[in-house]
Design a protein around this nucleic acid. Structure first.
Length: 262
DNA sequence: TGTGATGTTGAATG
DNA sequence: GCATTCAACATCAC
């Protein structure tokens, strides 16, 4: 579920299901994903509390508690939330769940266990210490350009580095590079400013569209790379075939000849 | 059977 | 200290 638009969708789900109702009971099936406190401690910290709001920064979602503390709900590769009444509807890989006063449950489902749940007393301090970059949708164009200056790494590695900007992952990085017509392996510092502005603009358009569609990729335009992102597929723009290579340690797809390399 | 997958991290390297 | 790369993490699906 995991890049910015997907996490935004989960945040809306969280807001619609988790806020302003006391947590009667916390059940922990597997505390592997709870990284900074034990399952026991987690139960003690949350029982009787309620969530009053949420804050999302890139792929990082934080539930705000009525004591001012926060719970980080990072989805990893396969995290998801499910709200349900009948205990029989508990998802298969629920690692922990809350039962509310109204009898409903909210479960954190996570097959691959790469999620990261953190109990945080001081959110500002946590984010600062972590060095988490500004949200990709909220960063200013000037801020983006300043970050890109003199970077020696690849464009894709830059876009995906959460310390620079938070929210872009593997799929959206490829989409942004494709639509801006820039090769993902380009050296960031070599890309001229007009092109960086275009990359920023495409990033905003793509993220806004995906957020608007609640990250339901089936509703994405047919000409998005995402729709035919596989090796050897013909590129609709110039008749070349889609290439596959590793960039910044991630599988990357692009159209040779369509995307200029700097 | 083996491979790869929308994630991050910490160690290693330049 | 900073920037960058990459193996490791746990599980499932093709």
């Amino acid at each position: 579920m995991p890049e910015l638009p997907e996490v935004n969708t989960v945040q809306q789900y969280f807001n619609a299901t988790a806020l302003h109702q006391p947590i009667d009971e916390v059940t922990v099936h597997d505390d592997y994903i709870i990284r900074n406190v034990s399952g026991e401690k987690f139960i003690a910290l949350l029982t009787g509390r309620s969530f009053t709001g949420s804050y999302r920064r890139g792929k990082y979602l934080f539930g705000e508690l009525d004591n001012g503390h926060h719970v980080q709900l990072h989805l990893g590769m396969s995290g998801d939330l499910k709200y349900y009444l009948d205990p029989g509807d508990e998802p298969k890989h629920a690692r922990f769940l809350f039962r509310y006063t109204n009898g409903y449950h909210l479960a954190f489902d996570c097959p691959r266990k790469l999620a990261r749940i953190i109990y945080i007393e001081d959110l500002d301090n946590y984010i600062k210490k972590k060095g988490l970059g500004e949200d990709a949708q909220r960063i200013s164009r000037e801020g983006f350009l300043a970050l890109a200056k003199n970077k020696k790494g690849t464009l894709k590695g830059f876009l995906m580095n959460q310390k620079y900007l938070a929210g872009v992952g593997n799929l959206y990085a490829d989409e942004i590079c494709y639509q801006a017509r820039v090769h993902p392996a380009s050296t960031v510092g070599q890309v001229d400013e007009d092109t960086l502005r275009l990359i920023y603009q495409k990033m905003q358009e793509i993220l806004a569209f995906a957020v608007d569609k609640n990250a339901h990729y089936r509703q994405y335009p047919e000409d998005w790379l995402w729709k035919w992102r596989k090796e050897g597929h013909p590129c609709p723009e110039n008749g070349s075939t889609v290439q596959k290579m590793q960039i910044a340690s991630r599988t990357t797809y692009y159209c040779e000849g369509w995307q200029r390399k700097y």
